[in-house]
Simulated assay, not measured.
Amino acid sequence: MKTTGNTIFLTGGTSGIGLELARRFRDLGNTVIISGRRKDLLEKIAAEDHIDGIELDVADPASIAAAYETVTAKYPDLNVLITMAGIMQPEDLRNHDLALSEQIITINLLGTIRTVTAFTPHLRKREDGVIMTVSSGLAFVPLVMTPTYSATKAAVHSYTQSLRHQLDLQVIELVPPAVQTTMLDQENDPHAMPLAEFADETMQLLQDNPDADEILVNRVRFLRDAERENRYADVVAALNPPA
C-alpha cells in the first residue's frame, strides 16, 4: 500500500485509533473520509481537522449500502477501505446477556463483512485497490472478560486470510495491541500502548513495508506470536490472571 495519494474511506473514524490514523493519512497527502453514527461529531471533526465524514451505522445493512453509494459517487477515485468500526464490552458468561453478544458480532464481524462486500466491486476496478481490516492481538490470545469481542477479532483474522487469497487486490490486516483509547476505559491504562506511539509505529511500518499482509507493532507480538513460539498457555495465564 502506498501511503500518499490515496482516497481512503475509514469506518469508525470519530475517535481513538480510527481518528488518529485518519489524521496521519491526511497529513501524508491522502484524501480521507471517515464515518460514524453521530452527525454532530462528524461535523466537529470536519471543522477542526478538515476530514470529511458521513453518517454510517455498520450494524445496519441499509446504512452500509447508502454509505457506499454516497462515498463512491462523491469520491470516484476511492481506492482504500479501512474497516475500523467496532465495540468492546466485558461479558459474564455465567449470567449471559445474549443480546450484547449479538450486538458485538453484528458490529465487529458482520459490519466488517458487509462493508467489505459492498465496496469490493469498486475497489477491484482500481489498480491500487486496498482493503485493510482491523483485528486485534486478542484474535490470537483471548481476553476472557471480553469473550465475544475476542472471538469476533479471531473471525476477522480468518476472514481476512480468505479475502487475501480470493481477491486480486491487496488485503492488509492491522493488528493493534491494547491502546490508550476510550475502548474499555483504557485512556490512562499504563499497560496499554500510548495512542500517538501506536500511530507513529503503524505509519512507519506501512511506509517501510508497502507489500505487507499484516501490520504488527512490536507491542502486539507478545500475543500474535504466542502460539507459533509455543508460549500460548503461559500468555493466556499472564493475560487472564485469577481474580
Score class of each variant (00 low, 15 high):
M1W: 10
K2H: 11
T4C: 11
I8A: 12
L10Y: 07
G16T: 04
I17M: 11
I17G: 05
L21H: 05
A22T: 01
R24W: 05
F25L: 09
R26D: 10
D27S: 15
G29P: 08
V32P: 03
I33L: 15
I33M: 14
K39G: 00
K39R: 04
L42F: 06
K44I: 02
I45M: 04
A47V: 01
G53F: 12
L56A: 01
D57T: 00
P61K: 01
P61E: 08
A65M: 04
E69W: 07
T72V: 15
K74A: 15
K74C: 13
P76W: 03
I82S: 06
T83R: 01
M84D: 14
M84L: 05
I87P: 03
H96K: 04
L98Q: 14
L98W: 14
S101E: 11
T106R: 12
G111D: 12
I113K: 00
I113C: 03
R114T: 09
T115Q: 11
A118F: 12
P121D: 10
K125W: 06
R126Y: 08
D128C: 10
G129W: 09
V134P: 07
G137I: 09
L143I: 08
T146V: 14
S158G: 13
Y159S: 06
T160Q: 09
L167D: 12
V171Q: 03
L174P: 04
L184I: 02
L184N: 13
D185E: 09
Q186Y: 04
D189H: 03
M193T: 13
M193N: 02
L195I: 02
A196G: 09
E197H: 07
M203R: 06
N209S: 13
R219K: 14
R219Q: 14
R221F: 11
R221T: 12
R221A: 03
D225Y: 12
E227L: 13
R228F: 09
E229M: 13
A233E: 15
A237L: 14
A238N: 05
N240Q: 09
